[in-house]
């Protein structure tokens, strides 16, 4: 059974249909890269998958939950689906440990000791074990983003969504975040990641999806898709990146 399945979903703002009949199926342990031009609907699709945006047609099946137009109670779903944002969105009034422990403590009622141990474990995973007591504004962008990944991991999600998590970062900071994500992929996490890093998509994602004008224009195994794009749109999209 797929971990995530999008069945013909639709999302419109007025007359503009940002998602126009999207079908996508993601198997457990899949790493799916989503690429496409700015405005093609990549973020919107991710946001629909964990219910930050309401869909207007179709349905989404995700780790045993179903989202349809009008679905409201999404909290049980969000406990199992992590999301990492482009702008990190750490809580500035809490230190690293508190950022990570907050949701397990209040949402899942995990005992303090256990939450603390999980926090240390996920911080080690992202290579920031020495930053437990730091506040977000004391960290570099790359470190903040890795804490955000750790915060999401601490909820022990079954699926993780990444929305251009490196596009606010310098190249050298990008590297450390991508390395963290690659390690997660190697550990078998199911992930959907929107990215502008073509090389990374090609290496880490086993499948790549190209979005164009609110539709999935082309998809396939990453190697095949990058090596032999079928549509002219994808060809012209990846051409500048292959030089």
């Amino acid at each position: 059974m797929p971990a995530v399945q999008l069945n013909n979903i639709k999302k419109c703002y007025g007359a503009l249909c940002v998602l126009d009949g999207i079908n996508l199926s993601v198997e457990p342990r899949d790493v799916v890269a989503v690429i496409g031009q700015s405005g093609s609907g990549k973020s919107t699709m991710l946001r629909c998958i964990n219910g930050l945006e309401q869909i207007q047609g179709g349905s989404i099946d995700i780790v045993g939950h179903r989202i349809e137009p009008g679905t409201h109670s999404l909290r049980s779903l969000r406990k199992e689906v992590g999301m990492v944002f482009q702008s990190y969105n750490l809580f500035p009034h809490l230190n690293v440990a508190e950022n990570i422990m907050l949701a397990p403590r209040v949402v899942k009622n995990v005992p303090k000791q256990e939450a603390w141990e999980t926090a240390q474990m996920v911080l080690k995973q992202v290579g920031l074990a020495d930053k437990v007591g730091a506040y977000p504004d004391e960290l570099s962008g790359g470190q903040q983003q890795r804490v955000a990944i750790a915060r999401s991991l601490a909820m022990k999600p079954k699926v993780m969504l990444f929305d251009e998590v490196t596009s606010a970062l310098d190249p050298q900071l990008t590297g450390e975040v991508l390395k963290t994500i690659a390690e997660l992929a190697a550990a078998g996490m199911t992930m959907i990641l929107v990215t502008h890093e073509m090389g990374f998509a090609r290496q880490v994602a086993n499948r790549t999806v190209f979005m164009y004008k609110g539709q999935i224009w082309e998809e396939g195994r990453s190697e095949d898709l990058f090596a032999a794009p079928k549509t002219p749109e994808l060809r012209s999209f990846i051409a500048p990146n292959l030089k």
Binding site: R75, R78, F91, P92, V106, V107, S152, M155
Partner: peptide
């Protein structure tokens, strides 16, 4: 609004979002 969304993505309820994320700030 990103602070609300980050808390949303962590499955927090509205009272939890207010109590732990929004109101302290």
């Amino acid at each position: 609004k990103q602070q609300w969304e980050a808390a949303d993505a962590l499955a927090m309820s509205t009272p939890q979002k207010l109590r732990y994320v929004i109101l302290p700030q």
